[in-house]
Amino acid sequence: MDHGNITADFILLGLFNHTTAHQILFGVIVAVMVISLLGNGLMVLLIHEDPQLHTPMYFLLSQLSLMDLVLISTIVPKMTAAYLTGNKFISPVGCGLQIFFFQTTGGAECFLLGAMSYDRYVAVCHPLRYANLMSWPLCLRMALVSWFLGAVDGLMQAAFSLSFPFCNRHEINHFFCETPTLVRLACSDTSAFEYIMYICCVLMLLIPLSLILMSYSLILTAVLHMCSTEARKRVFATCSSHLAVVGLYYGGAIFIYMRPKSYRLVKHDKVVSAFYTIFTPMLNPIIYSLRNNEVKGALRKCLSHLRNDVRSN
């Protein structure tokens, strides 16, 4: 078999062709990207500007929004430009950067969602001890550790993925550089790397997911003992929406990274990747933040300040 070199550009085949149905779907993706950027950007701005939102919970939410901003900015603009211009080439450096930022934010989000579930557990089950159990130093360490572990995973996957010799046909049947799809193009044995990647997935997906499920199980137990029906309904609604997002994100990531190679189909991988890399960042600010009364109050306050500034000018 002929071998290429790692300096040749890759070709991203993309998610859509130019049929009418796919053009409509492309428009939906662009709209989702715009909503995601506006929603997550607004969350970061509100949490930074409003003193009432300077709490550990909202700090973690701001980090989640920041991760989603980086995630969707890493993938969708390149996919959009390739579809509109027809230029589907991406350099090895660009491919490596996509893998790094995607894995960094994806891995960091896995750990951050675990930290957020602990925050909710403390708030519901130990409200009187919340200030001690969720102190600012602990909150900052949680965020920094999440970013650090995500960056280590991103750097490792980017470096190792591009270290293999690739066959002369550098076509990536995907809409961005994702490690499992890229490794399929390698002309050498990748079994050792795939085993290491599988171990990393166990650590970065199943351990935080176990913490999340344990936290929400304890929350559910506490809720069932609440006397107030209204409080019980409110906590149930919040937890169910949070778990829906967790299920979409972790379910998609586990489907892509932890399935046996023999069960993988490229079309399925692209659709599932689109859900957890494009649609989930749009849902996060809506479910975690914009339904919150304190965030709504901060938004009204911000809009009021803007109206007053416009009138004064």
Rank of each mutant, 00 (worst) to 15 (best):
M1G: 15
G4Y: 05
N5P: 01
G14R: 05
L15H: 04
N17D: 14
T20A: 12
T20V: 11
Q23K: 11
I24N: 00
L25D: 04
G27Y: 01
G27H: 03
V30E: 11
V32R: 00
M33H: 13
V34N: 05
I35Q: 03
G39E: 07
G41T: 09
G41K: 12
L42T: 14
L42P: 06
V44G: 06
L45R: 14
L46N: 03
T55H: 03
P56C: 13
P56Y: 10
L60F: 00
L61W: 05
M67Q: 10
M67K: 02
L69Y: 07
I72H: 04
S73A: 13
T74A: 11
V76T: 12
V76H: 00
M79P: 04
T85Q: 05
G86E: 11
P92Q: 02
G94C: 05
I99S: 08
F101W: 14
E109Q: 12
E109A: 12
F111V: 13
F111Q: 01
L112Q: 11
A115H: 01
S117V: 09
S117F: 08
D119E: 14
Y121D: 03
A123P: 01
R129Q: 12
R129P: 00
Y130Q: 13
A131H: 10
P137A: 04
L140A: 02
R141N: 12
A143P: 01
F148E: 03
L149K: 06
G150P: 05
D153L: 14
D153Q: 13
G154N: 10
G154R: 09
A158I: 05
A158Q: 06
A158R: 03
F164L: 07
F166L: 03
C167T: 05
F175C: 02
F176Y: 15
P180E: 06
T181S: 15
V183C: 04
R184N: 15
R184G: 00
L185K: 12
T190P: 13
T190I: 07
S191Q: 13
I196K: 10
M197R: 13
Y198L: 13
C201M: 10
V202D: 02
M204H: 15
I207R: 09
P208T: 09
L211V: 14
M214S: 12
M214G: 00
T221H: 11
M226L: 14
C227S: 08
C227E: 12
K233F: 02
R234H: 07
F236S: 09
F236C: 08
T238V: 03
T238S: 14
H242C: 07
V246E: 05
G251T: 09
F255I: 01
Y257I: 02
M258T: 08
R259E: 01
R264S: 02
V272F: 08
A274I: 00
F275L: 14
N284E: 13
N284A: 08
P285T: 06
L290N: 00
N293Y: 10
G297C: 05
G297P: 06
G297W: 01
A298G: 06
S304W: 06
V310T: 12
S312I: 08
